[in-house]
């Protein structure tokens, strides 16, 4: 992404500008301006860094969601896969020093396993992703409810989880942001510089064409779901570290924001088109919107309404399909 040393056949500047990303960044600036009118501290570095930190949890989850949306599929299993990751990592912490060391990988592994199941359903059984992931979501919920007895578990997050989510490695930069940056860099590399990434875009455009070109489409789809599940679970691990423990239905608040930030960032919901920079913009946009709504002390119902209305109206601005002709 950084220094594209491409030949002179590069398209002119006005064609390279990505309209959705420009609009998303413009909206971020607009939101910051509105916020600064409301409260002076809105533009302070501490506040912005805090927002970025909150955004990075969503960012990790949205990265996985973006991969799936690029394939032209959707992952509705985020809420409970996220909760599973959080609860399993916290549960592992209770098993002595070894469990504590393996807490983070174990939580992620649970998410990967669930992602593999939905991926196999989508890729090999050819069932629509929407219902496979819905089913996995319910099954994950059922497992967790049966495991915890319907209450929030007593296990607390391990030190490593807390450190990842709340610590500062470099002078005042929260670790969560670094984690998101690392995952983002990996995603950009994988999407733009590997055959895997090329195959993801190709499948999103037309799976049969990708298959005929020799891409292992079914394997790519399955592994993408595994990655998405793993990232959702990792998001849960981070959130558990942030809050100190896992909770029932902690993931419910992350499905719509994850989809919204990917789609607001200009990734086509039909697949095949999208840019990670857009997802970054979408994540920040969604987080700022949530933050402003809570700073303005709008109650829950108002937040839901404004939130839904903003997503619909922004999509109407640039997410429309071509008319049927």
């Amino acid at each position: 992404m950084t220094n594209d040393a491409q030949p002179s056949s590069r398209p002119p500047l006005h064609m390279r500008i990505n309209l959705p990303i420009v609009i998303a960044f413009a909206c971020i600036i607009l939101l910051l301006l509105i916020g600064s009118l409301y409260s002076k501290s809105f533009l302070s570095p501490e506040y912005l860094l805090q927002q970025l930190k909150v955004a990075s949890f969503l960012g990790v989850i949205a990265t996985g969601m973006m991969l799936i949306i690029l394939l032209g599929q959707i992952d509705l299993s985020v809420p409970w896969v996220l909760t599973t990751g959080a609860m399993m990592a916290s549960a592992a912490t209770a098993y002595g020093p070894l469990g504590e060391a393996l807490a983070v990988p174990f939580g992620i592994a649970c998410g990967v396993a669930m992602g593999l199941v939905s991926g196999a359903g989508v890729a090999y059984l050819r069932i629509p992703a929407m219902i496979v992931t819905l089913a996995i979501n319910v099954i994950a919920q059922g497992l967790m409810v049966a495991y915890t007895g319907g209450f929030s578990p007593a296990d607390t997050a391990s030190d490593a989880m807390r450190y990842l989510a709340t610590g500062n490695l470099i002078l005042g930069v929260p670790n969560a942001i670094l984690v998101w940056a690392a995952i983002g860099a990996l995603a950009v590399f994988a999407l733009n510089r590997t055959t895997f990434g090329r195959a993801v875009y190709a499948i999103g455009n037309r799976e049969s064409a990708a298959f005929l070109s020799g891409a292992a489409t079914q394997r790519v789809v399955m592994f993408s779901f595994a990655i998405s599940g793993g990232l959702a679970a990792f998001g849960g691990v981070l959130l558990a570290g942030y809050a100190g423990k896992a909770a029932q239905s902690m993931g419910d608040a992350y499905l719509l924001p994850a989809i919204a930030s990917v789609v607001l960032g200009g990734t086509s919901i039909l697949g095949g088109r999208g840019n990670y920079l857009g997802t970054v913009a979408g994540v920040i946009l969604v987080t700022l919107l949530q933050s402003i709504l809570s700073v303005m002390q709008i109650s829950e119902y108002g937040r839901q309404i404004i939130y839904g209305a903003v997503i619909v109206s922004m999509l109407l601005l640039y997410g429309r399909e071509k008319a049927l002709r």
Binding site: L256, I259, I305, Y307, G308, R320
Partner: peptide, 18 residues
Amino acid sequence: GRLQPIVTTIATGAIFFG
């Protein structure tokens, strides 16, 4: 509006619930 039903109805669902 020519939007995808999945995203649209998730968003309008938030509005209705609000």
